[in-house]
Design a protein around this nucleic acid. Structure first.
Lengths: 189, 189
DNA sequence: GCTAGAAAGCTAATGCAGTTAGCTGGAGTT
DNA sequence: AACTCCAGCTAACTGCATTAGCTTTCTAGC
C-alpha cells in the first residue's frame, strides 16, 4: 500500500503541529519535521509543496479546530449566554495551544481553502448573533466587533502584551460584559 | 568625524524601517539593509548586535511612534471625545504603515526597553481613562479592554482577516461606540 | 605635525535552512 | 516475471546569519 515510512500530507501536518506546540512557531522547519517523521528533508516535498504551503495547511487545521470548538461551545445556548461561551472557548483554545494560535497567518493569504475556513469561523459568530435579531449588514458589523475584541485580547495575551498575568481572567470578564452590553444596547449600522 | 559610510545604529534602523515599509517584514534581512546602506553585511554588526536585536530596535521605534501619535490625538480632549480620537489615530497609524504595525512583536520579549515603551503606550490610554473616573484597578482593566478591541480590529484588518474592505470604516465606528458605551455604563472590577 | 589606538569597514569562511535534480528500490499491477 | 509508479534518498546549489581576523581611517594626545 504505502512504500516506506508510510508518510502522507496529513501525517506531515500532524508532525508539524506537534513541533509547533512543543517548540513554538519559529521551530517549524522542514529539517525538524523531517527529523520528527524519520525521513530526509527533501522527502517532505513529496507530500507538501514547500514550507509556505505547510504553513498554510497548519493555519487551515488551526482555524478548523477553533471553529469546531466554538461551535460546540455555542451549541444549545443563545444571546448573552452564547456570546459568553463563545468568548470563553476562544480564549481557552489560545491558552491551551498558544503556539497554534500564533500560527494563524498575520498577513493576507490568497489561499482559497484558508478563506473558506475563515468563512466557517465567521459563520459561527453570525449564528450566535442572529439571536440578537441583527439584520444582515448589522450582523456583519457586530461579528467583526466581537471578533476584534476577542482576537485582540487573546493576541495580546499570547504575545505577553499585558503586564500582570494574575488578573487577566477578571479583565476578560469585563471584556465579555463590554461586548455583550454593546450587542444588547448598541446600534449597528 | 565618522569613518567611511557614516553609519550609526540610528541610520541602520532608519534603513531597516524604509525596507519594512516598502517590502514588508519578511524582506527585512541584514543583506538587504546592508545593500541599502551601501555597506557589506558583516559591517552591520558594528552597529547592531544581530538580526533579533535589530527587530527589537524596530519594534521600539514603532511603539514610540505610535505612542506619540496617540498622545497628540488625545491631547486637549476628554472622555468619549478622547477615546474616539485615540481609536481613530490608532487605526490610522496602522493604515498608513501596515508593515510597521506588523513589526510589533508577536511573542513575549524579555527586552527592558521594549517593556518600557509598552508602558508608555499604556500610559496614554490610562490618561484618557482617568476622565471616566475609574480607580486604579478598574482603569487597568478598562485600558486592557480598549487596547484589545483596537488592536484586534487593526490586526485583523492589516492581516486581511475581514472579507469586504468597503464598510470597514462603518464597522470601526460601531466598535468605537461599543467601547465608549462600555466605558460609560460598564462596571469594571 | 605625528603617532597610537579605537572604531568602522572589508574579505573569507562556516553552518544551516529551503529547494531542485536525478537516482533507486520496493509495492502493486499485468 | 516484467513493468510501472512513487516514496524516499543523496548530491548539490542558494541565500542568509554569523564569526574571525585583517585593513583602513578618524581622533586624541603628545
Amino acid at each position: 500500500m504505502v512504500s516506506r515510512a508510510g508518510l502522507s500530507q496529513e501525517a506531515v501536518v500532524d508532525a508539524a503541529l506537534e513541533l509547533v506546540d512543543q517548540d513554538g512557531l519559529d521551530a517549524l522547519t522542514l529539517a525538524a519535521v523531517a527529523n520528527r517523521t524519520g525521513v530526509a528533508t527533501p522527502s517532505l516535498y513529496k507530500h507538501v509543496r514547500n514550507l509556505a504551503a505547510l504553513r498554510q495547511l497548519i493555519a487551515l487545521r488551526v482555524l478548523d479546530e477553533l471553529t469546531e470548538r466554538l461551535g460546540a461551545a455555542a451549541m444549545g445556548r443563545s444571546e448573552e449566554d452564547a456570546i459568553r461561551a463563545l468568548m470563553l472557548a476562544y480564549r481557552q483554545y489560545a491558552a491551551e495551544r498558544p503556539h497554534r494560535y500564533a500560527a494563524l497567518p498575520q498577513k493576507p493569504q490568497p489561499d482559497a481553502a484558508l478563506a473558506a475556513a475563515g468563512g466557517r469561523l465567521v459563520e459561527v459568530f453570525l449564528a450566535v448573533l442572529r439571536g440578537y435579531g441583527l439584520t444582515d449588514s448589522a450582523a456583519i458589523h457586530a461579528t467583526r466587533c466581537v471578533r476584534a475584541a476577542v482576537h485582540g485580547f487573546v493576541a495580546l495575551e499570547v504575545a505577553g502584551g499585558f503586564g500582570l498575568p494574575e488578573k487577566l481572567d477578571v479583565t476578560y470578564e469585563n471584556l465579555i460584559d463590554m461586548v455583550s452590553g454593546g450587542l444588547r444596547t448598541g446600534t449597528f449600522t
